[in-house]
């Protein structure tokens, strides 16, 4: 592969990482949602239309994408968050399908079947990496925050989370807003890199590829989706030359293997913690409620 082809691949890996983070944001709160693809589509077409009509600076375009995505996330959550898990997931898939219909029919704004051109001045490394760094920073700050621990709790056991006075719906609502903001940003970047968007740009394929990236990378830590998106965008390219048409088979097999042997993905903090606990405990005592060998006998009496 040529250097420019590699650079293009890496750029899409970055955009996919943003989409994957958007999907992660709601998975974090226990909601499987492909809605970020829809949020991305709305932001991208709005960005394309406004850039053509009134002209938008890159910063303003990105800000618009984030704000629009967040607002859509809130509106979507308000409408569908009452649904039970599977139906909620299906509703978000329906949104992706509806998005395509809208693009095809709002010809005046979207260009319909022939699509529309988008300025590419946001499609630079500086903007992309800058945005990814900011997104990663925000997610890392939220992990372990009041919201982050509540989100972990809601995902792991919503019933128990409720008895800790946490309202799962409220947490999931915030998750959708985060997901919307990230999806909106991702959509604007996608359109800026492609410089052309059509009815198939933001469709089921994008949704499933990014969802696979989250599952592969790990849906239990914010770094998971980023690692997964980069790996899953680059892997098929690496395999294309030696494998020819079989690259997709290999990618599929890799995904299945990871799901079987690393069910929590490549970035698995729980596994790391288990390993650490095990190695830490090894010298001497088998269980932590047993007094460690060599500890003075009086140590127990103090408790």
């Amino acid at each position: 592969m040529s250097t420019t082809a590699w650079l293009t691949t890496l750029q899409f890996a970055g955009v996919n990482a943003l989409f994957a983070l958007a999907i992660y944001a709601s998975l974090w709160t226990g909601v499987l949602s492909l809605a970020p693809v829809f949020f991305g589509a709305v932001s991208a077409f709005t960005f394309g239309y406004l850039a053509g009509a009134i002209g938008l600076s890159p910063a303003l375009g990105l800000l618009l994408g984030v704000a629009l995505g967040a607002a859509l996330g809130a509106a979507t959550a308000g409408l569908i968050i009452r649904l039970d898990s599977h139906y909620l997931a299906m509703a978000t898939i329906a949104m992706v399908l509806i998005g395509r219909v809208l693009v095809l029919n709002l010809t005046e704004y979207t260009g319909g079947a022939s699509g529309t051109l988008v300025p590419g001045d946001l499609g630079t490394w500086v903007w992309l990496i800058g945005t990814l760094v900011v997104a990663g920073y925000v997610m890392s700050r939220l992990a372990g925050s009041r919201f982050g621990l509540a989100a972990d709790a809601v995902r792991e056991d919503p019933a128990v989370a409720q008895t800790l006075a946490i309202s799962p719906r409220q947490i999931q609502f915030v998750g959708f807003i985060l997901s919307g903001a990230l999806g909106g940003a991702a959509g604007v970047f996608q359109s800026s890199f492609l410089q052309y968007i059509g009815p198939d740009t933001f469709y089921t394929h994008l949704g499933f590829v990014t969802l696979a990236a989250v599952v592969l990378g790990g849906a239990f830590h914010w770094a998971g989706p980023i690692v997964g998106a980069i790996a899953f965008t680059i892997l098929p390219e690496l395999l294309r030359e030696p494998m020819g048409e079989y690259d997709r088979v290999v990618t599929g097999v890799a995904l299945v293997l990871i799901i079987i042997y690393m069910p929590r993905g490549l970035v698995d903090v729980r596994r790391l913690r288990l390993l650490r606990d095990r190695t830490r405990r090894r010298p001497g005592d088998r269980r932590e409620d047993v007094t460690p060998a060599g500890a003075p006998a009086g140590a127990e009496a103090s408790s």
Binding site: L149, D152, A153, A161, L164
Partner: peptide
Amino acid sequence: FPGMTVLETVIAGAY
């Protein structure tokens, strides 16, 4: 909660 440390578990309760 699977995956949470002892400390995180208790802090989660203080929501």
